[in-house]
């Protein structure tokens, strides 16, 4: 038992989701690599290549939904913790730090995979920023119920 509102399965789910977003960005980079060598293929998947960042951001919105339910579900837990000596600010801070650390680990892991595959990682930075923003936003909803 620790002071975090995240359980082991929550942590694993988060890492899985973060990695999923980064790998999806990698998938679109893979599509781009394939299409770069073929005008015909490019003519078919141009819409995916051109809007790949929008697609990845769209998919990553699920992470916000997931984080939202996580913090919503934690309402009673936050209340209990505050009653026995914790503070909301510290709970939020711990939540933010932990989520961002997990995000950083996922980013590093995916970066290694991307570099091994020879993919550029520019798109991963967009995903990183978006996911960090989701974490910050979800912390706003964290409170006692």
């Amino acid at each position: 038992m620790d002071r975090s509102i995240l359980r082991l399965n929550n942590r694993l789910e988060l890492v899985f989701l973060y990695l999923g977003c980064f790998l999806l960005a990698g998938f679109f980079v893979y599509l781009k690599h394939q299409a770069d060598d073929s005008e015909v293929l490019m003519s078919y998947i141009k819409f995916m290549i051109e809007k790949r960042r929008a697609f990845v951001l769209g998919f990553s919105a699920f992470v916000l939904v997931f984080l939202y339910q996580l913090v919503t579900k934690a309402g009673t837990e936050v209340r209990c913790r505050v009653l026995v000596g914790d503070t909301l600010r510290q709970i939020k801070l711990r939540y933010l730090v932990e989520c961002l650390i997990l995000l950083g680990i996922s980013f590093l892991l995916s970066t290694v995979v991307h570099l091994l595959l020879g993919f550029e990682i520019v798109d991963s930075f967009y995903v990183l920023l978006a996911l960090a923003a989701y974490v910050l936003l979800s912390a706003v909803f964290l409170g006692a119920r």
Partner: peptide
């Protein structure tokens, strides 16, 4: 060239659509 590209498009779209279905269900 053409049909392999078309196949590539449908497979890529299929993968993404399956992912969308999964995420929609989870959501």
């Amino acid at each position: 060239y053409l049909f392999s590209s078309l196949r590539f498009l449908t497979v890529a779209s299929g993968v993404l659509l399956i992912l969308i279905v999964l995420l929609s269900v989870l959501s």
